[in-house]
Amino acid sequence: MISMMQTDFLKIKRKGFWFLTFLGPIGVVALQMVNYGVRKEYLLQQSENDWLYYLQNITAFTPLALVLGIAIFTSFMASIENETNAWKQLIALPVSKMTVYLSKFTMLACLLFISSILLMLFTLGFGVFLSFDEAIPWLELVKYSFYPYFAALPVLALQLWIATVSKNQGIPITTGIFGVIFAYSAHIIPDWMIWKWPSLMNQWDEPLINVLLGLGVGCLLYVVGMLDFTRRDVL
């Protein structure tokens, strides 16, 4: 498994995966840099707690970046294997198909986790730069950086599944577009839709529920996808 993952990391060399891993969180924070750069005074008037308000502004984009990032990563990874039909070589190796699938999932989960760490650092950095009056809300900062990640695991599992079994990568990308539209409409879509979860909204106002749901349903969708992947013929 470890060696399988080393191989997977080797394969994504020079393909822009690392670039995107950095770009995601940078982009999310950069949007707020522009936002605060243009109308800081106005934004500071919007709430009592400027730090929290700033975090909420960041969090408006985190789910969108996550959902789109997942769609891009999974489809990108599938294209690398599809390009010369490397699946047939991979599956003819003495490793189980489950290992192949698990390794891909784990690698992407790692990249996204790194993105989340970076998101926290960049958020903190720019927040400090803005020098709000309040103390840094550490707990909230960690929550807003990592909760969406865990809540997005079902989306990762679903997109990985679709991307690996689709011949036409237009399908997973279109699914990703659906996903981002749902994520953007989080306030009006029902609680059961997995794309709502990274927004941390739910009717009980308890973000932890989304995290737990994300972990649980993420595992479930992962297993379903993996079983379907192992069942299929490799062409």
Binding site: A86, K88, L93, P94
Partner: peptide, 29 residues
């Protein structure tokens, strides 16, 4: 499969990697 080597139809490789890296990717597994 641990004792079988194979080449099915067209060779599969990762075009953005060098020949050495392609083999290394396999070797690791």
């Amino acid at each position: 499969l641990a004792r079988v080597g194979s080449l099915v139809e067209n060779p599969s490789y990762y075009p953005h990697l060098t020949a050495y890296e392609n083999l290394e990717a396999l070797r690791k597994i």
